[in-house]
Amino acid sequence: MTESLPLLLRAARGESVSRPPVWMMRQAGRYMKVYRELREKYPSFRDRSENPDLSYEISMQPFLEFEPDGVILFSDILTPLPGMGIDFDIVESKGPLINNPIRNFDQVKALNPLEPKASLPFVGEVLGRLRESVGNKAAVLGFVGAPWTLAAYVVEGKSSKNYSVIKAMAFKEPELLHMLLDHFAVSIANYLNFQIDSGAQVVQMFDSWAGQLSPIDYDTFAAPYQKKVVDLVKQVHSDTPFILYISGSAGVIERMASTGVDIVSLDWTVDMAEGCTRLPKDIGIQGNVDPGLLFGSPEIIRSRIIDTVIKAKGRKHILNLGHGILPGTPEENARVFFETGKNINELIAKI
């Protein structure tokens, strides 16, 4: 019976549910004391994310503490890059570093097609263990970075404020960039299919830096490759809900909905009611509480969550933050977020 399936999975599929499911982007991470203690013992991010025992333990930490409706794989959007022949490191307080940025045709032609089962077996192991551990108490989420965002990292070589290197490539050597983006689209689709085969029940694609594009360039360099990933995954796993998230997406919300995804994840810069009017009725909505709110009082956290849920009433809605939870967020406030979400019907009834 579908009632026995996880609440988040049923909601993401558009079934009638008793309340919006709730989870947080980046819910496994630096705001939790237990994670920071583990990081002291294992300072390398890649060690933490690519060792299946550590990745599984970290993925489970917020579930054991707060029991959200979704448990997301602890990994990184850059994790599949070495399987394509691109090495990287993640330096604490500096972020990702690409040792040999992609800048020419020869480098793109030399990239390997991603074979996830061979190069990312630890991901499959962790997802399988998560499914076994949480059962139907929560949905297991997998995720990837979108082609544009992966390209932004590997072309720039690191995080960027203005993305001048990849934009120069886009406007001077568009054929080169399109070749790279297409390679990533096929590889990422293979990776998502592997995650679903391994146990992921809902998947999310992060195009974190597509919000840096003008709408016309989004239509050229981001949306077609988002759609290619979605299409390739849906050919194999048509019933797996697919979420798309872009930071700073206010200008392209309607475009996000046209990529074939099931759910658009809104950041906090768009009012939930406005977001609902701008998206087709059949498209679900995730979000979109400001993560900075979790530094506030329990009262303001509850009132803002109630406001968000009321505005999304009648829509397929997954309660989440509008971005990842911030380092330094008080754990007790994260608890308020989750508990408010799980008791939302009673709280709204008291208004």
Rank of each mutant, 00 (worst) to 15 (best):
S55G: 06
T259N: 12
K41Y: 09
K316T: 06
E92Y: 08
L232M: 07
A250R: 13
M205I: 14
N343Q: 10
E254K: 15
E274C: 11
Q195H: 05
D69S: 04
L9W: 05
N51G: 01
S93P: 03
Q201D: 03
L97A: 09
E57Y: 04
E57P: 05
V34K: 05
P21L: 11
M32T: 14
E15M: 05
V229S: 00
Y191S: 14
V22L: 05
Y191H: 15
S258T: 14
K167M: 12
P116K: 07
P82H: 04
T269S: 12
G199W: 11
A334F: 11
G83L: 04
K137Y: 08
I246R: 01
N104Y: 11
I344P: 01
F171Q: 13
L176A: 13
N288M: 12
K227L: 05
W268V: 04
A257E: 13
Q107C: 14
M25S: 01
S297R: 15
D290T: 12
P20Y: 00
P291F: 10
N320A: 06
K167T: 15
L78N: 00
G157S: 11
R278M: 09
E299H: 06
N343D: 07
T329H: 04
P298N: 01
E346T: 02
K167W: 13
T220H: 12
